[in-house]
Amino acid sequence: MNTPVVNSVNVTINGKSLTVPKALSVVQALWLGGYPRIESLGCLEGVCGSCRVLVRRAGSAVVSTELACQLLVEEGLDVSFLPYTDTQPRTYQLGCPISLSSVLETFTQTFPEAAKCRHCGGCDNSCPKGITVESAITLATAGDYQTAGEMFLECVLCELCETACPEFITPAQIGTFSRKVTTLLSRRPSNLIHRIEALAHQQFKVDIDR
């Protein structure tokens, strides 16, 4: 009789069956199992957004999307990596000087799909950071970039929301766009501007041999 090893779990990663110790992340399990995975890995701390995976847990029919470096192994876990696909990136040039009307126009031209959101909730469900993507996109489309951008504070650009969207909206990039234009449309910080002016008037110098 084989005694079950209680400290090990059986998982399936990219279709390969592995028996690995508990308390490992999916990435560590793959390496320990002898698979030299590099693609889709980066910071291993949950902020670079690289290690996107599809996940199904034992006894569940639900498939979720998560970040592999943050996902611990458990009995019956089934994981598949979801590498990025090479989509044509949206590019834009913001006018100089920048104005709200030019930003609104750039937004509509760069992200024409944003207005077609059918509120399916796919983006909300796919976000590993729990961002309420759908309402943020509604706000950005209405021109409230500040509120929309703030909602994307924790966005790691994994772009799972984009993968989930049936209308080909690019929410993560819209989040960055919203944060960017919020800064560009705002007054520059006063303490910084005062110091830069003082430096321009040679009011400060550094004596390196003091």
Partner: peptide, 16 residues
């Protein structure tokens, strides 16, 4: 510990 070597498949599809 990644088991990576130059020339291997960096997707980790083959066991080393």
């Amino acid at each position: 510990y990644t088991k990576f070597e130059i020339g291997c498949d960096f997707r980790g599809s083959e066991k080393i």
